[in-house]
């Protein structure tokens, strides 16, 4: 079968507030772009099929699996990774709480968990235990059995609700 002519595309992607003009193959996933081109390592490969949540980033403030997104399709989107949220106070609280609760064992799934937890607490500050678990179901954490992350997030939610 003859190769079709155009295989690479110029893509303008906005990541963590920076505009990047890239030339990428049409099939390149956002996860690859973030890691190999922009060296943002908080998005991680776990399955490539959207089941494990290790590659989650925020697209227009919503956590989504970057392994299922094609880079050429992200022109209009605002992408944020954990690296770009260093100044976010809710994320900082969550990170402190994760550290205190030993909620990151190997740490591989943690950026995804943090982004989903932040999203839930932002959209639903008094999220119930079952909402919390539903949100975390996007992520596979093989180390903790989810206990410590759930404790860490609940702790932030409880203090957040008081504030």
């Amino acid at each position: 079968m003859p190769r079709l002519l155009k295989t690479h595309y110029s893509a303008v992607v906005t990541v963590n507030g920076h505009v990047h003009r890239l030339t990428v193959p049409g099939h390149e996933r956002l996860l690859t772009t973030l890691r190999e081109r922009l060296h943002l390592f908080s998005a991680r490969y776990g399955c490539g099929t959207g089941h494990c949540g290790a590659c989650v980033v925020l697209v227009n403030e919503e956590p989504v699996p970057s392994c299922l997104l094609l880079t050429v399709r992200q022109q209009k989107n605002r992408i944020q990774t954990l690296e770009g949220l260093k100044k976010d106070s809710l994320l900082a609280q969550l990170m402190t709480s994760f550290a205190e609760e030993h909620a990151a064992q190997c740490g591989y799934c943690t950026p995804g968990l943090l982004l989903s937890a932040r999203h839930l607490l932002k959209t639903c500050p008094s999220a119930t235990e079952s909402q919390l678990r539903e949100e975390l179901s996007s992520h596979i954490c093989r180390c903790t059995g989810y206990y410590a992350p759930l404790r860490a997030i609940a702790k932030v939610r409880d203090s957040y609700a008081v504030d």
């Binding site: 079968m1 190769r3 079709l4 049409g26 099939h27 996933r29 490539g48 099929t49 959207g50 699996p65 299922l68 997104l69 094609l70």
Partner: peptide, 16 residues
């Protein structure tokens, strides 16, 4: 569709 499941595990169609 929204995701790119047909691209999973290394498969790359000529065009989509």
């Amino acid at each position: 569709g929204g995701g790119s499941w047909l691209l999973s595990d290394g498969s790359v169609p000529e065009a989509v």
